[in-house]
Simulated assay, not measured.
Amino acid sequence: MQARQLPAQRGFAWLGEGLQLWRRNPALLTFASFGYLLLLILVSVAPFIGQVLASLLMPVLSLGVLNTCRAIDAGRKAGPDVLFSGFQQNLPALVAIGGLYLAGSLLVLALTAVADGGTLFGIMTSGGKLEPEIATSTGFTMALLIAISLSTPVMMAYWFAPLLAGWWKVSAPKAMFFSFFACLRNWRPFLAYSIALALFGAILPGIVLGIVGMVSPTLATLLSVPLPLLLVPIVFASFYANARDIFGEPDNAPEQA
């Protein structure tokens, strides 16, 4: 199990490859993507332990979405039950990844208290109201910058971890270790990928809807409704595209660069 080091331009291709994958089976991929989101939302609203359970299940269900993409990519027939296939693939490690990711996220939020006295931590963990004067304060701005800076390595450690644990059967710490360094090694294509996501997922649709809204606000509203149905599964498919590009698959792993 080795990670390729890819050129920057590959990052721009991942979103297009996600679109191609979605076009091969839009119904199944849309079901898996929104089923993943809906299940996490439903679990998270459970009293007391909902947020913790959602964090623990997130790697399991995300592996189910990746398995959906893998089945479509290989041309295999798959049904809606593939979303739950992660429960059969190294479940203890997947749950441990969710726990480590939750712990890392909470630690990052706790460290932001140095800047704003715990305001951001309270809002993110208990859903407190953000007052306008707080949002514009220097301390809160610093807390946001700290959160973004420190949460980036946490996200890097999580990014590939579910598929590494599920497909290669490695332990949670090892999966997160390899995920972090694979992202670090490929920071250039990931930067290009982030630009592509911002451009095609937010900026261009916003410009188009803004222009349409100037002509017909009603039409702009109608066009904005199905937009997530298209963008969300394509973005999920692009996650699979970058994972396949960097790590390959267990039966076709890339050689060490």
Results as ranks from 00 to 15, higher is better:
residue 169 K to L: 02
residue 169 K to A: 08
residue 169 K to W: 00
residue 170 V to R: 09
residue 171 S to K: 03
residue 172 A to N: 05
residue 174 K to N: 11
residue 174 K to V: 11
residue 176 M to F: 09
residue 177 F to G: 01
residue 177 F to R: 14
residue 177 F to Y: 14
residue 177 F to E: 13
residue 177 F to I: 03
residue 177 F to K: 11
residue 178 F to W: 15
residue 180 F to D: 11
residue 181 F to I: 03
residue 184 L to V: 10
residue 184 L to K: 15
residue 185 R to E: 13
residue 185 R to N: 14
residue 186 N to T: 12
residue 186 N to E: 12
residue 186 N to S: 11
residue 187 W to V: 08
residue 188 R to F: 12
residue 190 F to D: 06
residue 190 F to R: 01
residue 192 A to N: 01
residue 193 Y to W: 14
residue 193 Y to I: 06
residue 193 Y to R: 12
residue 193 Y to N: 13
residue 194 S to Q: 14
residue 194 S to F: 14
residue 196 A to P: 13
residue 197 L to E: 05
residue 197 L to Y: 11
residue 197 L to D: 02
residue 198 A to K: 07
residue 199 L to R: 03
residue 199 L to E: 04
residue 200 F to S: 03
residue 200 F to G: 02
residue 201 G to C: 08
residue 202 A to W: 15
residue 203 I to A: 14
residue 203 I to G: 06
residue 203 I to T: 09
residue 203 I to W: 08
residue 204 L to C: 02
residue 204 L to K: 03
residue 205 P to Y: 05
residue 205 P to N: 10
residue 205 P to T: 12
residue 206 G to P: 06
residue 206 G to Q: 12
residue 207 I to T: 04
residue 207 I to D: 07
residue 207 I to A: 14
residue 208 V to A: 12
residue 208 V to P: 04
residue 209 L to Y: 01
residue 209 L to T: 02
residue 209 L to E: 06
residue 210 G to P: 06
residue 211 I to C: 08
residue 211 I to L: 15
residue 211 I to R: 08
residue 211 I to A: 14
residue 212 V to E: 08
residue 212 V to T: 13
residue 213 G to P: 12
residue 214 M to A: 11
residue 214 M to E: 14
residue 215 V to A: 15
residue 215 V to L: 15
residue 215 V to P: 02
residue 216 S to M: 05
residue 216 S to C: 00
residue 218 T to Y: 03
residue 219 L to K: 04
residue 219 L to Y: 10
residue 220 A to E: 10
residue 220 A to G: 06
residue 220 A to N: 11
residue 221 T to K: 14
residue 221 T to M: 14
residue 221 T to R: 13
residue 222 L to N: 06
residue 223 L to W: 07
residue 223 L to N: 04
residue 225 V to P: 10
residue 225 V to S: 04
residue 225 V to W: 13
residue 226 P to G: 07
residue 226 P to S: 06
residue 227 L to W: 07
residue 227 L to I: 09
residue 227 L to G: 06
residue 228 P to T: 09
residue 229 L to H: 11
residue 229 L to P: 00
residue 230 L to D: 03
residue 231 L to H: 07
residue 231 L to C: 08
residue 231 L to K: 02
residue 232 V to T: 13
residue 232 V to E: 01
residue 233 P to F: 01
residue 234 I to S: 01
residue 236 F to G: 00
residue 236 F to N: 04
residue 237 A to C: 15
residue 238 S to E: 05
residue 239 F to N: 05
residue 239 F to P: 00
residue 239 F to S: 03
residue 239 F to M: 04
residue 239 F to V: 09
residue 240 Y to I: 03
residue 242 N to T: 09
residue 243 A to R: 04
residue 243 A to W: 00
residue 243 A to M: 11
residue 243 A to G: 14
residue 244 R to Y: 08
residue 245 D to P: 09
residue 245 D to M: 01
residue 245 D to L: 07
residue 246 I to S: 00
residue 246 I to C: 01
residue 248 G to Y: 09
residue 249 E to I: 04
residue 250 P to R: 00
residue 250 P to A: 12
residue 251 D to V: 02
residue 252 N to I: 00
residue 252 N to S: 13
residue 252 N to D: 15
residue 253 A to N: 14
residue 254 P to C: 08
residue 254 P to V: 00
residue 254 P to I: 03
residue 254 P to H: 07
